[in-house]
Nucleic acid binder design. Sequence first.
DNA 1: ACTATTTTGGTACTTTAGTATGAACCCAGG
DNA 2: CCTGGGTTCATACTAAAGTACCAAAATAGT
Lengths: 136, 136
Amino acid sequence: MKKTILVFGLLILAILLLFQFSKYTLNTGDIRTEFVVSIIALTFFLIGIYINKKSLHKKASNLPEIDESKIKELELTKREYEVLQYVSKGLSNKEIGEKLFLSESTIKTHVSNLLIKLNAKRRTQAIQIAKSLKII
Amino acid sequence: MKKTILVFGLLILAILLLFQFSKYTLNTGDIRTEFVVSIIALTFFLIGIYINKKSLHKKASNLPEIDESKIKELELTKREYEVLQYVSKGLSNKEIGEKLFLSESTIKTHVSNLLIKLNAKRRTQAIQIAKSLKII
DNA sequence: ACTATTTTGGTACTTTAGTATGAACCCAGG
DNA sequence: CCTGGGTTCATACTAAAGTACCAAAATAGT
């Protein structure tokens, strides 16, 4: 936010200076018209590229975003979602249990509930569904 | 390719016309300097945005691209890669067999070889690895 | 404090996944 | 022609995943 204001402030300042510069040089006539026009053109060309790059950069990073609302919609609990994340990383029930300091039985319970809520038959299908719902 | 040439051709033409326009109006003095400078600035500003959008659009669509070279590098055969794709969609060995009109045994063989080549212990891990390698 | 949900974990069972091994077939390249 | 890689399939086995059912803690909401 602060950065944006600073950038635009400098931009406006640059534009005003350019106006004055063009006015002065064109009136005195000591520099060729083409040269002045070229500088103006180049400056705004670069400004256009810069502005556009900033705005598109945000869109690009927005693409792999998780949809929190869908998680609540599916009524996934914290633990279930946590387990889902490990499942999607390719861990076995045993390995997940070790990571979370839980027994394999507990993980099985969570995965089972997970599959029902995601309407999946297998954990691989759960991964696919979760990804299409943008919750992982 | 043809489009690019056309666009740049028109661009150069526009620039030349603008040069002539600015020269003429500034010399005759019937239009104010600020106005001419503004038109030039705006034009190149828009050109900058346009060029940038085109080039960034390609990059954005390039992101979800499959890396054919990695598939050969891993020495995955056609069938194995085909099976891998179905695995990543969440199908069971039986279901994949039905899709490809093969027995479950055959799919098991392919999956086993797949896991070795991808250095994975489970099919879920294979999915994760394949995605990180951008081959699915 | 009481209740509903979550979290945890167990047993017993079925199903699916994965390994090991062997074998037959096809097909392109030397 | 024959050899190697790819494909297909089978059997027999082990391991992992998943289901069903139950039950005791822990936690959070009213």
